[in-house]
């Protein structure tokens, strides 16, 4: 019996080796080449940027606030762009993480999987993920600036002075709420609106990542907690969320790395071509790495001269987003390993 099987196997092998299968070779070769080609493109882009950018990057470059003419390779720097990008991304995180995590909690812990609520929320999340980034920009302009911001300005100019009076009279606080009478404060592009627009854009990223990590937590843990007489909320807060923390972090990091490189949503909602100082307030405009790259690439008076600083800026942005991506991948790998170890 045993001998027979061995025999049959050698025979097949022999048969295969005899006949050269052209189509198999062709097909594997073709698809393999497609894979190689894509990897090649990725490598070319990265190498091109790293090689060209590395020689132009310096401590001075990353730590200088440039003068108005930032096309000059010798004096320019990208500090305000790094600060602006970081600032808008941090503010975004503050908004998007709670909302995304709570939505994911509702979807996995509360809602029945097949209920209408869940299906509609899921459809909305999927759709939100597919909305073009420029449409988010329009939304930011139409909703946050022209609706929310302008109404805030109106409210402040209408009620600000009286509120100010009351506060001053009873609490001895003077907020100068009436100061905005002449020029808009909130009804114009500002850091807060750019951040909020990005928060809406990255909401699906956080929801999906958090959901994934919540689903990976064994039901047994929830049951154990509930059987001890914990309420659902206690179970979520004390057992489920601590376990899901790495997943939530991954989601947050992915959202940040996605948002850090996006330019289209902030074009009309807060980015500035040039600012002499760093942004200090939520209603300030800001400079941004991605937008700065766009400006350097398309509006330079002499592209050959700007090329090194362009590459250097790209390298800074790329290092930022890639570092974040890699951290996210590492956390995720560690969590998966841990889960597998738990069985």
């Amino acid at each position: 019996m045993n001998a027979q099987t061995t025999n049959a196997r050698t025979e097949t092998r022999h048969f295969r080796a005899e006949k050269f299968d052209f189509w198999s070779f062709f097909f594997s070769g073709l698809t393999g080449m497609a894979t190689l080609f894509i990897l090649g493109i990725l490598a070319t882009i990265l190498l091109n940027i790293v090689i060209n950018g590395w020689s132009a990057i310096s401590w001075h470059f990353v730590s200088t606030i440039p003068k108005k003419d930032f096309f000059d390779a010798n004096t320019t720097g990208v500090l305000p762009m790094i600060v602006g990008t970081a600032f808008r991304v941090i503010v975004m995180t503050i908004f998007v993480i709670p909302v995304g995590v709570i939505t994911a909690i509702y979807l996995t812990e509360y809602a029945a999987n097949t209920s209408l609520n869940t299906r509609i929320i899921r459809a909305a999340v999927n759709n939100l993920a597919g909305v073009p980034s420029i449409v988010f920009g329009l939304f930011g302009l139409g909703f946050f600036i022209n609706f929310v911001g302008k109404n805030m300005d109106r409210g402040i100019s209408n009620f600000g002075p009286s509120l100010d009076n009351i506060l001053q009279k009873y609490l001895h606080i003077h907020l100068h709420l009436s100061a905005s009478d002449s020029s808009p404060v909130w009804g114009q592009p500002a850091l807060i609106w750019a951040s909020l627009t990005l928060a809406v854009m990255t909401l699906p990223v956080v929801i999906v990542a958090t959901e994934e990590s919540l689903k990976a937590i064994p039901t047994g843990l929830r049951e154990a907690s509930l059987a001890l007489g914990a309420t659902k909320l206690e179970t979520i807060l004390k057992i489920v969320l601590p376990q899901a923390l790495p997943g939530i972090m991954t989601g947050g990091i992915l959202a940040v790395s996605r948002a850090a490189g996006e330019v289209a949503p902030i074009l009309f909602t807060g980015v500035a071509y040039y600012m002499a100082s760093l942004p200090g307030h939520l209603s300030d405009q800001f400079m941004d790495l991605g937008y700065h790259i766009f400006v350097l690439a398309t509006q330079s008076p002499n592209i050959e001269q700007t090329r090194p600083i362009l590459y250097a800026t790209v390298l800074v942005l790329l290092m930022l987003t890639f570092a974040l991506n890699i951290v996210a991948i590492l956390i995720r790998a560690r969590v998966r390993k841990k889960l597998r170890a738990m069985g």
């Binding site: 047994g220 843990l221 049951e223 154990a224 907690s225 509930l226 059987a227 001890l228 914990a230």
Partner: peptide
Amino acid sequence: RKRVGMVFQKSNPFPKSIYENVAYGLRLH
């Protein structure tokens, strides 16, 4: 559930310390 405790087929300790596992239910109550 406080009065009717339960032990499951598959042991399901919380991924915490031994002390915290027992303390969890006590703190809840």
